[in-house]
Structures are given as structure tokens and as C-alpha cells.
């Protein structure tokens, strides 16, 4: 049995099954983060002061608690990784497999870099007794960035598979492999976009 339109697009929709699938998945992800962001807005508008007092201090802006330089660095890292994964795909389009491997490798390295910075940030919060239970601000900060970090980890798993064992497919079915990298890229760009919104709303406003 062969399932149609896994490699070639269906003529009347113009897309492959996996492209439909990934965009539907991203639609549900938009709703997930939409729900989280609206919870954030709901809690913030309902709070008498924001971020308020925690661990014995009064804060008037988020940037006094959170490290804007680190978050800005992470923004740059994620944008760069978004660029490299699209370059990885473009390399496959140009039939340059070794360059694909290089770009995919850089993408994964950058993702680990992001998590490293994130871990460093979390650790410095915990050191100062700034736990999620301290205030609603910290709670929503940890939930939003934590769920985003889980998505980053998911991306690392998928991308590593396509760099390692999954890349064997390039020899047997290059077109489907290229499609897969495109799909993985779409997911990764979405993770990037979420961070583009998270950064100003949590750290800067």
C-alpha cells in the first residue's frame, strides 16, 4: 500500500500531506501559546502592580529582575539558528549534502547554546530565591519560557535525528528528505517566532 501525496504535492491543493500536517500542528501551537499569552494578559491586567514584590524586594519593571542582555543574546541565537536551518534546506535544494550537514550541525549547536543561556538565567534566579512560587510574575515567566524551552528541546531531538540516522534517506529518496527538512524548519521557525514575542512581552514591558 502506498499513501498518495507523501512526496509529490496533490494537484488541487498544491501541497504534500506532511506540509498540511505541520501547518495544522502549528495552528494548534498558535492556540496553545495564544492561550498562555491571554492568561498572561489576564493575570497582568488583574494585578495591582507588576511585577510587584517578591523575595522581599519591590520591583517596578521586569528588567530589574530579568536579564535583558542575556535574553537579547538568546534572541540573536535563535534568529541565527532560524537562518541556518533555512540554509540547510537551501543546501539540499542545491544538492549539496555536506553543506546541509554543516548548517544543520550549526543549528543544533545554536539550540544548545540557547538552552545553556536559559539554564544560566534560571540558575541565577534560583540563587536569589526567585522561585516560581514567589509571585505571579515569576510563575508566568517560568511557565512561558519553560514551555518554550520544551519546544526547543523537541526541535533539537528532531533536528538531531535528521542530522544523524534520518539523513540516510538522502541516498534513497532525496526529494522526500528535502521535504522533511523543510517541515522541520517550519517547526523551528515557529519556535523562533514565539520567542520573538516572548522577549519583549516578558523582559521589556
Amino acid at each position: 500500500m502506498e499513501i498518495p501525496y507523501t512526496v509529490q504535492p496533490r494537484p488541487d491543493t498544491g501541497v504534500t500531506n506532511s506540509k498540511v500536517g505541520i501547518w495544522l500542528f502549528l495552528a494548534s501551537e498558535i492556540m496553545l501559546f495564544g492561550g498562555l499569552f491571554s492568561a498572561y494578559v489576564f493575570l497582568r491586567l488583574g494585578a495591582p502592580e507588576w511585577p510587584g514584590s517578591m523575595a522581599g524586594h519591590d520591583y517596578t519593571s521586569a528588567s530589574e529582575i530579568l536579564s535583558v542582555p542575556l535574553a537579547a543574546l538568546n534572541t540573536v541565537i535563535l534568529i541565527a539558528s532560524s537562518m541556518t536551518i533555512v540554509m540547510a534546506w537551501a543546501s539540499l535544494m542545491l544538492k549539496n549534502f555536506s553543506r546541509y550537514k554543516m548548517y544543520m550541525g550549526i543549528t543544533i549547536a545554536l539550540s544548545f547554546g540557547f538552552l545553556l543561556v536559559k539554564g544560566f538565567e534560571y540558575a541565577s534566579k534560583f540563587e536569589h530565591g526567585l522561585f516560581p512560587s514567589e509571585s505571579t510574575f515569576l510563575g508566568i515567566y517560568f511557565v512561558l519560557t519553560g514551555i518554550h524551552a520544551v519546544h526547543v528541546i523537541g526541535g533539537i531531538v528532531v533536528n538531531s535525528y535528521f542530522l544523524g540516522p534520518g539523513s540516510k534517506m538522502w541516498k534513497t529518496n532525496p526529494q522526500q528528505f528535502t521535504n522533511r527538512i523543510e517541515i522541520a524548519g517550519l517547526y523551528w521557525h515557529f519556535v523562533d517566532i514565539v520567542w520573538i514575542f516572548l522577549f519583549p512581552t516578558i523582559y521589556l514591558l
Binding site: 523562533d192 517566532i193 520573538i196
Partner: peptide
Amino acid sequence: AFFKGGLVARHF
């Protein structure tokens, strides 16, 4: 943020 997100969505 919308402009940046839009650029990523549109081109990447």
C-alpha cells in the same frame, strides 16, 4: 515583534 515575526513567517 509583529514585523519580525512576519518577516520570519513570510521568508523563512
